[in-house]
Structure formats: structure tokens, C-alpha cells
């Protein structure tokens, strides 16, 4: 019984950690610009597919991952510079549609360059599985969890300790005030897009040995990440992490104990319930609408 529960928990926590990284990306961009960046999922795809492509060129895996992350970072910055910043006078909904266009564009390019097939990345560790109290766990899950934890900690430190991080936070809280204090808003927003792209690419590369990867993997992972961010209140970093883990665990438990047919519905039911009873999300910040 307990082994069964543990097995579901392992599955849930692993996917949950991936969702959490994606959700963090959504949250970063949302906080800085109020844009829901629907291209976030594509950076996951780039993380996996570019790693694969660089490895095919003969680069060793760590270097290939680094290059993939660099590529995603550049694309994230470009997405902001060329698309979002150019149209910055536009309505937020318009900006969101631009990110949807960007997502389709990136997916389209990936499909032309890398083809439509699924690929598997090798596991980071030699040994693929370990046993814990009757349940088995991918060693790659440990990598996912470890790297996710490190990233979350680094981000937290970045926002608490560095001037740049504080500038981003200030922008999230009050754009006008931040601008008056000398923060270059556009630069901060670009930084948020770049950081989000890096988070997505890391998630994509670390997860690929488990999830496999292809040009359209970002659609589903992006949507799930967005749902996780929404559960967490779409504006809170802690909320994004908890939302992601909660979502992953809820899915695994539902598939395990209730119905695999409706495991995806659980996530969305969760959104409805949270909206009805805790409209700010689990960790939503209390923001007053400006008059």
C-alpha cells in the first residue's frame, strides 16, 4: 500500500518539478509585464531539441545543454526586443496574442530544422533507476528535483540580494514608481523574458530523458505550466512552485487511485475550485486595482 502511494508520489513530484519550472517562467514574465507569455512552452522544446542537435554535432552533453540554454536566452531576449518592446503601447491582450504568434513561429521553425520526430536524450546518470522502500525512482528524477531546487534558490537569492533583482521586484510592484527611481523598465522586462527562457530551456533539457522531446512538446508542457502558475496565483514565485508540485501530484494520484481518463481534468477542476473559494490563488499577492 505504502509502496504504491510512494510510487505515485515519485511520479507526481517529478512531473510536478517540471511544471514548477515552467510555471516560474510564466510568473516572472507576468510580474514584470502582465503578459501571459504563451511562448514559454517553446523554450522547453528548445532546451530539449537544441541539446539534441548540439550533441549530434559532436558536443559533449553538458556543453550541448549549455549551448541550448544560451540559444534559448538569446531567443527570449529577441522575443522581447523585437516583438514585445516594439508593440509596447499595445493592450495586454494584444501582447498575449503576439506571444501566441511567436510560439507558433518558433514551433514552425523547429519543425523545419529539426523535423517532426520524437527523440530521447540519454539519462544524466549511468544508473537509470533506484529503489526506495519498495518504489522505484528514475535517477533522472533526482536530477530534475535537484536542479529545480537550485534554480529556485538562486532566483530567490537574486531577487533578495542583488540590485537587479530588486529592480525587477520594484517594477512588478509599481511601474511608475520604479521608473521614477531610475529603473529602466524595458530592460527589466527583457531580463524577465530572458530569465524565463533560461528556466524553460533548463527544464526542457533536464526533463527530456524522461519525457522525450519533439518540436511540439511545448504545447502540452506550456499549458500545464500555465495552469500551475494559475493555481499558485499567477504572480507569486512560491505559488508557482507549489502549484506545479500540487498539479503533478494531483495528476499522478488521480491516475493511480481514481481514473486515468479524468486525471487531466483534475488540474482544471482545481483551478475552478481555487477561483471560487480562494480567488487570489493559493499564494496570490493582494493587489489593489488602480483607479
Amino acid at each position: 500500500m505504502f509502496a504504491e502511494f510512494l510510487q505515485y508520489l515519485f511520479a507526481g513530484v517529478t512531473t510536478g518539478a517540471i511544471y514548477a519550472l515552467v510555471a516560474l517562467g510564466f510568473t516572472l514574465v507576468y510580474n514584470a509585464s502582465h503578459v501571459i507569455n504563451f511562448a514559454q512552452g517553446e523554450f522547453i522544446m528548445i532546451g530539449g531539441m537544441a541539446t539534441l542537435a548540439f550533441m549530434a554535432m559532436g558536443l559533449p552533453m553538458p556543453l550541448a545543454i549549455a549551448m541550448a540554454i544560451l540559444l534559448a536566452a538569446v531567443l527570449g531576449a529577441l522575443l522581447h526586443r523585437l516583438a514585445i518592446a516594439t508593440a509596447r503601447q499595445a493592450d495586454v491582450v494584444t501582447l498575449i496574442i503576439i506571444t501566441i504568434g511567436a510560439a507558433i513561429f518558433l514551433r514552425g521553425i523547429a519543425q523545419v530544422i529539426w523535423g517532426k520526430e520524437y527523440h530521447a536524450l540519454p539519462s544524466f546518470s549511468e544508473r537509470a533507476s533506484i529503489e526506495v522502500m519498495g518504489a522505484v525512482m528514475y535517477t533522472q528524477s533526482l536530477w530534475v528535483l535537484g536542479i529545480a531546487t537550485v534554480l529556485v534558490l538562486v532566483l530567490a537569492l537574486f531577487f533578495k540580494r542583488t540590485l537587479l533583482g530588486k529592480a525587477i521586484l520594484a517594477t512588478c510592484m509599481n511601474k511608475q514608481a520604479a521608473r521614477l527611481m531610475g529603473v529602466r523598465i524595458q530592460f527589466v522586462v527583457m531580463l524577465a523574458f530572458t530569465l524565463a527562457a533560461i528556466l524553460g530551456a533548463v527544464a526542457g533539457a533536464v526533463a527530456a530523458p524522461i519525457t522525450l522531446t519533439s518540436y511540439d512538446i511545448g504545447i502540452m508542457l506550456g499549458l500545464k505550466g500555465f495552469v500551475a502558475a494559475a493555481i499558485g496565483g499567477l504572480g507569486s514565485g512560491v505559488g508557482a512552485v507549489v502549484g506545479g508540485l500540487l498539479l503533478g501530484i494531483a495528476e499522478a494520484m488521480t491516475a493511480g487511485y481514481i481514473s486515468s481518463d479524468y486525471k487531466d481534468a483534475v488540474a482544471f477542476l482545481l483551478i475552478l475550485v481555487i477561483l471560487l473559494f480562494m480567488p487570489r490563488g493559493l499564494f496570490g499577492s493582494r493587489v489593489a486595482e488602480r483607479v
Partner: peptide
């Protein structure tokens, strides 16, 4: 048991079948 076409992990369903 079933899984979604884009699912990335089916260990829960398989655990249930095994048990």
C-alpha cells in the same frame, strides 16, 4: 487504464495495473 496522447509519465497507470 488510459493516458493522454501528450502525457510524459505513465508510471501511475502501470503501477495500478501491476497491483
Amino acid at each position: 487504464q488510459t493516458y493522454g496522447p501528450q502525457d510524459t509519465d505513465m508510471t501511475s497507470q502501470l503501477t495500478r495495473i501491476r497491483n
